[in-house]
């Protein structure tokens, strides 16, 4: 681990925070029908250490910029990995950036999962859809130090079997690192032998020591709200339940005001916040 020194640590960006640094796309992989993973290297060779859970502002030259969570391994800061869903003009330009293309990167920004604070206990990862990507660095961190943790569960909900991300990872984490990987889909065709249903139902099945569990949740906000309620119902403490929030972001450094959730600037105070802070704010629409 070169990136995270402990709770509260945050890798700082270099130079003018508004000017993007060129990163070269080295590998370009289509994961699902709408999601791609890019592996990038800094054009200037200077590595970008990051904490699991942090994001960067990714720019396709002339097309614009979007906040994207880092999906790579924090133990390998020499490469920058992003998993991107094609949902708009900027992300379309990003996922179509082939090998050799330079993309602009600002960051890394925001708070991390700080999964290492869960050492000695159980860890439950709850992911919905593309929400698995921001959790992947934390899962890798746990797998690299697996003996320090108790039971490790990954509860993952996808829309269809075709939308399941990181299939190779899921198999490796289960086989090599004793991660209890449970996958469910909203809609499965007849060929699907696995579970159909909501990810909250996987939480309800238990299999972890709730009072000694760190739970990390990432997915659509409505899914996170219900997953958090299910984890609370099983006895996970609100302060040991962390969510990664999404809001509009333009600057990434707490100056543009877009990402405010009442008193929090989610780009610097978040995106990862604990549920004791978030619960009253998530229970109101349009906050």
């Amino acid at each position: 681990m070169t990136a995270v020194a402990g709770a509260g640590s945050r890798a700082a960006p270099r130079g003018d925070p508004f000017v993007p640094r060129p990163f070269v796309v080295r590998r370009h992989r289509q994961d699902t029908r709408d999601t791609w993973t890019l592996v990038l290297e800094p054009a200037d060779g200077a590595t970008m250490p990051f904490a699991a859970g942090q994001f960067t502002m990714m720019q396709a030259f002339g097309a614009g910029e979007a906040p994207i969570s880092i999906s790579g391994d924090p133990a390998r800061p020499e490469v920058l990995e992003h998993t991107i869903r094609n949902v708009g003009a900027v992300t379309r330009a990003l996922v179509h950036a082939g090998p050799g293309t330079e993309l602009g990167i600002r960051g890394p920004f925001g708070t991390g999962w700080e999964v290492s604070s869960g050492r000695g206990g159980d860890v439950v990862f709850v992911a919905g859809g593309i929400g698995l990507a921001p959790l992947r660095p934390a899962i890798l961190e746990v797998c690299a130090d697996r003996a320090s943790y108790g039971r490790v569960l990954l509860l993952y909900g996808a829309r269809t079997p075709e939308d399941i991300l990181f299939g190779d990872d899921l198999r490796r984490w289960a086989a090599d690192h004793a991660v209890d990987v449970q996958v469910t889909v909203d809609n499965g065709q007849h060929a699907w032998q696995g579970r159909v249903g909501l990810v909250t139902q996987l939480v309800d099945r238990g299999g972890f020591d709730a009072v000694n569990t760190l739970a990390l949740v990432c997915g659509p906000e409505v899914m996170m709200r219900y997953a958090a309620m299910a984890l609370r119902a099983r006895g996970v403490a609100p302060a040991r339940l962390r969510l990664s929030m999404e809001r509009n972001m333009k600057c990434g450094v707490g100056l543009c005001g877009h990402c405010q959730l009442r008193e929090y600037f989610l780009c610097v105070d978040g995106p990862v916040l604990t549920y004791d802070v978030l619960e009253p704010l998530m229970s109101r629409a349009e906050l």
Partner: peptide
């Protein structure tokens, strides 16, 4: 910032 494409269009400098 202000930038332009380089390296035949695949790169940029800002």
């Amino acid at each position: 910032w202000r930038g332009r494409r380089t390296a035949g269009g695949s790169g940029f400098e800002a």
